[in-house]
């Protein structure tokens, strides 16, 4: 079984990751990305969207962002939904997400600080 080897690897990861922690900022100053994970969200493809966001953040070595979840907010027809909440900014809700669009939001909104207007929830 490769299990023992894996646990050794986890110990190595711990040592590497430990050095990163000190650089982290407080939770209040962090940006939050919230993925809709109700039944509607999951059925519409929220899981690959969330995994794409995590992957893009990892690739770009962004550690000051919290990725979290919420339930159904009643906009099921627009799922998968992704909220970006930055401190001192109004919340931005993106609709009809897919993994590619989600990656785009990480690059444009999180890194370049530009809201991607075309994916923002329409006024209803």
């Amino acid at each position: 079984m490769p299990v023992i080897k894996s646990m050794e690897e986890l110990e190595k990861i711990r040592k590497q990751a430990k050095d990163m922690i000190n650089l982290r900022v407080d939770n209040e100053t962090k940006t939050r990305i919230v993925v809709g994970m109700g039944t509607c969200g999951i059925a519409a493809g929220a899981r690959p969207v969330m995994l794409a966001i995590l992957d893009e953040l990892k690739k770009r070595n962004i550690t000051n962002v919290i990725v979290t979840e919420t339930g159904c907010i009643g906009l099921c027809q627009y799922e998968p939904l992704v909220d970006v909440i930055q401190p001192d900014h109004p919340k931005v809700t993106y609709v009809n997400m897919n993994p590619e669009k989600a990656r785009e939001i990480v690059v444009k909104h999180i890194i370049n600080n530009q809201v991607v207007d075309e994916y923002v929830v329409p006024n209803i």
Binding site: S6, L10, E11, I13, R14, Q16, A17, K18, I21, L54
Partner: peptide, 20 residues
């Protein structure tokens, strides 16, 4: 327990969990 102060949602740890 193995990770101690390292959070479970660290990207490297998540990668490891997926592969594990």
């Amino acid at each position: 327990k193995t990770l101690q102060e390292v959070p479970l949602n660290n990207p490297m740890v998540l990668d490891w969990i997926k592969r594990f």
